[in-house]
């Protein structure tokens, strides 16, 4: 039923502050009182920022946009967990009722050589765009399409493809992986397209060039710890990584290029 009345929280926040990419960063500690448990995590940071502005200190920079868990723009390490303690949840959808009065919360940016910090908690994830540019598409021009029903796609295949396509590109998989590997992200796109007839013609070229780009960006290798899957807000399964591995070796062994 209606959730039990929660009391407002007092929190200690340890937040990574870094003025710009080339400047050294450090943790700064802030006290925040009277936080409603119904607030989202980002609303809590909004309140902190309001107070910082009042005191004349520059607000904490963090990326965010849709605030409904779909755009993939937000993301930070909260007490060592990507997007915080909840499963299948982005930072914007994490609510303060998940925390206790008196808690200390450590907040850090995603850490990866391929995701340099821009400021405070905001990082540059353009490496993901470059991985998609390497082959995460079907080469079809506008106007070239045949009728949508011309290819029958078994419902199971479509569902499984959709499971992979649901990736929001937030980077939590990279952040949570001890190797800062982007294999879950990369595999989600490979798996989405390879399970559809439309993606089949380019399957070999796609997987080879996407992996080559992945490696070039400086992401680590997948060592199958599956922390990515646990951290993924879109519930992308590591089975897609296995599919990627399969596709990669098949392509490597049979591609004529």
């Amino acid at each position: 039923m209606i959730s039990p009345a929660h009391h407002n929280l007092s929190l200690t926040l340890k937040i990574w502050r870094q003025p710009h990419a080339d400047a050294p960063g450090e943790f700064r500690t802030y006290q925040l009182q009277d936080v409603s448990p119904h607030m989202s995590f980002l609303e809590m940071l909004d309140i902190l920022n309001e107070q910082l502005i009042e005191k004349g200190e520059e607000p904490v920079a963090f990326d965010h946009d849709c605030r409904e868990g779909i755009c993939g723009m937000c993301g930070m390490m909260i007490n060592g967990q990507a997007h915080g303690p909840d499963h299948e949840t982005t930072t914007c959808q994490l609510h303060m009722r998940r925390f206790e009065d008196g808690d200390t919360i450590v907040i850090e940016p995603w850490r990866s050589r391929a995701f340099p910090v821009i400021r405070d908690l905001a990082v540059d994830r353009s490496a993901f765009d470059r991985i998609i540019q390497a082959g995460g598409y079907v080469s079809v021009k506008t106007g070239q399409a045949i009728d949508g029903n011309a290819n029958l796609i078994p419902q199971q295949d479509q569902e499984s493809s959709m499971d992979a396509a649901a990736c929001i590109g937030c980077g939590a998989c990279v952040a949570a992986c001890k190797n800062a590997s982007a294999m879950l992200f990369t595999s989600a796109k490979v798996s989405h397209l390879v399970q559809l007839p439309q993606g089949a013609p380019e399957r070999k070229k796609r997987v080879l060039s996407m992996i080559s780009q992945h490696d070039e960006e400086g992401f680590g290798a997948c060592t199958n710890t599956y922390e990515c899957e646990a951290a993924c807000p879109a519930a992308i399964s590591v089975s897609h990584i296995a599919r990627l591995n399969r596709e990669y070796m098949k392509a490597m062994l049979t591609s004529k290029e």
């Binding site: 060592g80 967990q81 303690p85 850090e108 850490r111 990866s112 001890k178 992401f219 646990a230």
Partner: peptide
């Protein structure tokens, strides 16, 4: 490669599994 990919380690890290 994996070590280099992280570059800066987290002050606090905890599994979500």
């Amino acid at each position: 490669g994996n070590y280099a990919a992280r570059q800066i380690s987290y002050a606090k890290a905890s599994s979500k599994k």
